[in-house]
Structures are given as C-alpha cells and as structure tokens.
Design a protein around this nucleic acid. Sequence first.
DNA 1: TTGTATGCGTTATCAT
DNA 2: ATGATAACGCATACAA
Lengths: 336, 336
Amino acid sequence: MNIKDIAKISGVGISTVSRVLNNSGVVSDATRARVMSVVKQYNYVPNSNARNLKMTQSNTIALMVKGISNPFFANMIKEVERQVHLRGCPLLIQHIEDGVDEIGAAVQLVKEKNLCGVIFMGGTYDHSEEEFKQLTVPFVLTTITTIKEVDPSVFSSVSIDDVHSAYKATNYLISLGHRSICFLARFPLVENTIGNRRLLGYKKALEEHGIPYDPAFVEDCEYAPSFGFAAAKRLMNKNKGATAMFAASDAIAIGVAKAVLSSGLSIPGDMSIVGFDGIEMAEYYHPSLDTISQPGVEMAHVSVETLFDLIAGETANKHIVFESLLVKRGSSRKIN
Amino acid sequence: MNIKDIAKISGVGISTVSRVLNNSGVVSDATRARVMSVVKQYNYVPNSNARNLKMTQSNTIALMVKGISNPFFANMIKEVERQVHLRGCPLLIQHIEDGVDEIGAAVQLVKEKNLCGVIFMGGTYDHSEEEFKQLTVPFVLTTITTIKEVDPSVFSSVSIDDVHSAYKATNYLISLGHRSICFLARFPLVENTIGNRRLLGYKKALEEHGIPYDPAFVEDCEYAPSFGFAAAKRLMNKNKGATAMFAASDAIAIGVAKAVLSSGLSIPGDMSIVGFDGIEMAEYYHPSLDTISQPGVEMAHVSVETLFDLIAGETANKHIVFESLLVKRGSSRKIN
DNA sequence: TTGTATGCGTTATCAT
DNA sequence: ATGATAACGCATACAA
C-alpha cells in the first residue's frame, strides 16, 4: 500500500492524496472525505523513509541517554517523550554505553536519519568545540553543561551546578560536626565527569573548613545499590572513624545505607548519609535518606522547550541552571 | 555529502562506492582503499532513509515498552539493546503510555519505517488474533503472553507464569500462618492485565486453603513506591487485622514497607511483605524484601534470540516460560 | 481544485 | 572490475 494505490482507489492524483494527508494546499471537502475514507479503510500509513528522504529533513528528535538504568533518568525520559510528542514529533531514544562518545554517535545519527534536533542526557563534561561544530542541528545538553574552554555560544544546556550542589551537601555534614566524611561517585578521579564535578564541590567544602582531603575517603562506584554497598563496605573497613557518607547518587546512597544497617550500625546514629538526585526510592527508604534533589522533570521540560526554540530559529544559545535542593529527611545527625 | 560526492571525489562510479560500503560485489583492493579513505576523510555516513526506502525493508528492530519507569525493565532494555546491536541492527526504543494499544502502535511503526521485527515488553494479555495478523513482521511478547482464545501458533512469547508465581507467593504467606493477606497491583480488576493474572494466583491460593476472598484486601496502585505507600495506608486503615501484604511489584512493595515502618510497626514482626520482580532496590531495602524474582535479563536475551530466529526464517512460534523464584530474605515471618 | 513530472540518496540490474 | 541507470515512496513546483 503506497500513496499511488490510495490515489488510484480514490480516483484522484497522488498529489491530492499528499495534500490531504499533510493538510497542505487546498482540497475540496468532497475529495478530502473520499481520500480519507480510503486511507482509513486500507489502514494506510505513509512511509516515513520516503517522506524524510524527500524532505531532506525529518522532524525526528533524538534523545541520547547515558546511564538509562539510573532511575533518576526514568521520569526525565518520560517527560521528554511527552513534550516532544506534544509538539507532533517522533522521538528516537538512544542509549549510550559508558565510555562511548555520545556526540560522535549523535553526529552519525543526524547524518543517517536527517534528525532535526538532539537532546543529550547524562554523560561527561569534556566535549570539545570541534565536536560540537560537527553537529549540524540544534541540540541541548541536559543534566550536564561543559567546561569553560568551550565557547558557551556554541551550545545550550540545562543543568544544576554540580560543584556547588556537592559543596552544599558536604557543608551540611560539616555543619553538623562531621569531619570524617566519605565520598562515593562514578569516576570521581576522571576529569570532567559528573562524579568529578561533585568531588570538586566536596573538596572545596573540606578545604574551606580546614579539613584535609584524604583520598582514602573516596571510592569509585557505579550508580547502583550493589556498587554503593560494596564501596561503603570498603570505606568502612579502611576508615574506622568515618561518621558520614556522601554519595553522588541516591542509587549509591541506598547501597551505602544497606551496608551501614546490615553491619548493625544505625542511621543516623552511627553514620550520617546524604545522597544525590532525589529519586522516590530514597524517600521511601527506611530511614528516608537526605539528598540533593534535582528538579529532573522540569529540567526535561525546559530542555525540550529550549530545543524547539532553537529549531524554530532562535539563534542565541541558553544555559539554564536550576537550583538543587538539599532535602533533609533525617538520615544525618549532629555529632559531638 | 552523499554517495555521489564520494564517488566524484574518489574518481569512481557511485555503484562502486555502494559496493565498498556494503561489502557486496567485487572491488579491487586499490579502489576500495581509495574510496574508504575519502569516506573517512569526509566523515561520510550513508543516509538510512534512502537506504531503507530502496531496500523496502530496513534492519531496524523496535522495542515497545509499556512502563519504562519501572526499574525492573531498565536492565532488560539494556540487554535487548546489547543483543540487538551485537547482531548489527539498530534498535528503536518506543515508550507506550498506559492505556495505549501497543500492537496498533507497532503496526503503524512497521508500515512507517519498514521495521524487520518488534519486541513487546510489558502490557496486557488481551490482544486478539486480528491484531496480530496485522503485524506483518516477526515479533515476540516479553514479560507477557496471551490468553488461550488466541491461536498460540500466531505469536511467540517469553514470560513467566504470572498466575502460578502469585500463587506461590500467596501460598508461602499462608504456609507461614497468615490468613489476612492484602494484595496490591496495577489494574487488578481489569481483565487480562498482569495485575489481574497475579490476582488470580492470589485468589487461587486463598481458595485452596479455604480462606474467603475479600475485595477489601485488594488495592489498585501504580508501579511506584508512592502509590504503594498510599495504597498500603488505605489497606491498613480498612483492615486492622491484616498480617501480610503481597505486592505485584517490588516498587510497590517498597512503598508498602515504608507505610508499615513509618507507622511504627515492624517488618516482619507486625507485617510480612512479599514483592514481585526481583529488582536490586528491594534487596538493598532494610529489611531486605522477599520477592518473586523474574530472570529479566535472561528473558530479554532469549527474546532477542527468538526474534532473530523468526527473522532468519524460523516459522514455528515458540512460547518460552521461565521459572520465577521465590526469594526469602526475611521480610515475612511465621505467625501463631 | 486537481493531476503530472521531477528528484531526494540509495541499491541493484544490467551493460561494459 | 566498474559505471550508467532504473526504481523505492513521497512532496512539491508547475501545468491544466
């Protein structure tokens, strides 16, 4: 079934069918009705490959997600999808493995499928201006931004201030009297990762309070409870005096909490815990876990808005920074 | 940049470029090298719209997910992606809203993009043979199967036995002495949903032990902790004597556990809890939650295998039923 | 208001 | 071993 068949059956030319289907040009009500009935009857769906080929630009948006299994992204993905569909565009969700260059993948995808826009969710901070220049369609970085070596006018971003947010969390623990604070994140020592940005905030808070930075208090772990659990065990073995743990993700924090509780210690009695992200699971943990909450759904929404502004011709790139919120639920306590 | 440009720059015809790119036909090593170097230099990527249009059949697989925010699906999605990419095919992840007909959406997508296969993840059991017949490419139902009115030879599926699994969980609680067991699921009263299948197992166990079924013990709730929390609160208010709760999802079970614990009750002292799925978060909850564990990643793997067998020409549809596992972690106890 | 014809970037068939 | 050319299904400029 193609447009030619529909035209023949309807007794009209193919351009008329095209006009009906795209609401372009003028078609008499009678022919429109006739064509539509044939379309319905045969359940005809236009071939998007042909359409995109002809149009040299599809209206498809791609969402490149790094870390699709992080529950924090789940609601964001749903919101992006909702917002993109609301604007009548198909969304292509693409999962990027750890370590794969998402910009390169996007460049390829754009050429391959004539996309009209890209949203990057998660990932690192170390993209070069070179790479961005390769991307010939509008795009928005969500959850991340980039470092200052890149001219901010060549890309848009929607994020929180990771350094400052981690600084806030660490400061909070210090203000409660903690001096031995552990830090857990993915790739904390790899420059320009989210984990590294948060490590910087952690270090900054320590420094400002004259607490020496000790690498033994830092562990690398994936964004999942099992890794948080194992890393927390290692930290507790190494640092008997630790009184607090700051995890750069709630998924990690949950594993940390389990490590503490299953060792017979109490939260926050023996160990204070602060997570990061603001996922539901951390709120419903027992005890509920303190966290740095990011407005994920809003960020997703604004990302789509920003992208469509760019697609609509807006030339000025924006850098929207949301406030993160320190949510205190009782998993940290004052000591001394 | 298109194949014509590459041909011109390389000083060859476009068919030669095509041959090089697709490893089809015979090309001299010299020309192949020359063409490849130009391709690399200009970073040329073939336009998949044109290719798919020409080929009348792309090699793209679609994954239709109902309930993408359910963490249980996260690892499954990753595995499907891994396996599909391993076979050199692009994967299109499509999220289907609650209440939307996924088969209809797939039929449309297949026509639109010339897909070569579809995997359905999550969703309901009530598809008709009519609908399946519309799907002109191989497909596999994962996580669900369908009811007996549909000829099993017209579709393939990879699932667990939901009725029997729920039966096992309920039986377990009954064997521990529980008589007042609550049940929580999404759409338990809507026929042919997963929730309903599990309700049937729950009812069957009650019946076999002469425990009357009481609708007041059943609550409808979405697959998320917040909904589990609210539903558990309602159940606890209605049924003061309830001693156990069986949730048709671990995400729900976590909310249930929080409702119990935050009421000052203990698990399993005052309330026994069993969940469903086997997600990490339930294991790392404190206390760790009992659950019916599904081998999600294996199911994803086998689904892709089955799909590719069908694509390769296998004509016999398979129905693979995995065993679920009752995992006892201590959130249920013997009473009386 | 409607139909005809051209080309989008490929692949594949045919000559060469 | 290689190049010209005809489709694939559609949108659109243009003719009617």
